[in-house]
């Protein structure tokens, strides 16, 4: 196992959490009702908190290898989209409330089984962060599952909006389980998660919730990949432009 693989792996986890957390934070002040505005903002903060933990660990690994000193802020604010290794699902735009909760559901279900496996990692740091994050994700999964069911099995309009969200997002779910090179290196060593092992668990959970929501899953659709290797959809660039603006325009700015 190389340290570089571990760094890439940790950045990948941080980027997933940061990008989806930022997407959710775009709802702050715009939620359909105050209580749900707070609920989604809480989830955004949980994810950004997870990202901080991953970046902090990645920065320690990078600094341990010598070279230019980095901090968690440098990793979040001063890397370009090509350097981000988040899954494409995380960066997809919010759309309506239905698309946002479906994106959260797919991703939380993935994080739930992923962290559940990663907390047994032989790398104690990865295991500790996974264990702490799993409690948060358990709630995210519950919250988003209930919304998917509520809207899917709701009115004609809510069901049609959920079906449209499914059509838009399903193609980005396959990538969650296609291991990048750094994942392939860490999995046999008992450090990273074996994605093939958690895939059936995710599929089972998604099937159950979609069935309860009376929604059709888009099986057989061609799956998009590339995010884990830094090849992103057009949306990530816009997200980073907004998120990184302050540090790019005023380097080192604090408030």
């Amino acid at each position: 196992m190389s340290v570089q693989a571990l760094i890439d792996y940790t950045l990948h986890l941080g980027d997933n959490a940061l990008v989806l957390g930022h997407r959710n934070s775009e709802w702050t002040g715009h939620g359909p009702i105050l209580e749900q505005d707070i609920a989604l903002s809480n989830i955004a903060l949980d994810l950004i908190g997870q990202a901080r933990n991953w970046y902090e660990y990645a920065a320690r690994l990078i600094n341990g290898g010598g070279g230019k000193e980095v901090t968690e802020d440098v990793l979040a604010y001063l890397r370009d989209s090509r350097d981000f290794r988040n899954c494409l699902l995380a960066e997809q735009t919010n759309g309506d409330w239905g698309k946002t909760v479906l994106r959260q559901f797919y991703f939380s279900a993935y994080q739930f089984y992923f962290y559940g496996a990663l907390e047994h990692s032989r790398d104690k740091e990865l295991a500790a962060i996974a264990e702490k994050s799993l409690k948060e994700v358990t709630y995210h999964l519950r919250w988003s599952s209930e919304w998917v069911i509520r809207l899917g099995d709701g009115t004609e309009e809510s069901a049609s909006r959920m079906q449209r969200a499914m059509d838009e997002l399903w193609t980005y779910t396959g990538e969650l389980f296609v291991p990048a090179d750094y994942e392939r290196k860490l999995s046999p060593a008992g450090i990273g998660v074996d994605l093939a092992a958690i895939r059936p668990l995710w599929e089972q959970r998604v099937r159950e919730v979609l069935k309860a929501a009376r929604l059709e899953s888009g099986e057989g659709v061609w799956m998009q990949t590339g995010g884990k290797q830094g090849k992103h959809t057009e949306h990530l660039g816009y997200l980073l432009a907004e998120m990184q603006f302050l540090q790019r325009a005023y380097p080192g700015c604090e408030w």
């Binding site: 509520r150 809207l151 709701g154 309009e157």
Partner: peptide, 12 residues
Amino acid sequence: TANNTISNVISG
């Protein structure tokens, strides 16, 4: 009731 409340979310 549940369906009515969902309509309310959609219609704002």
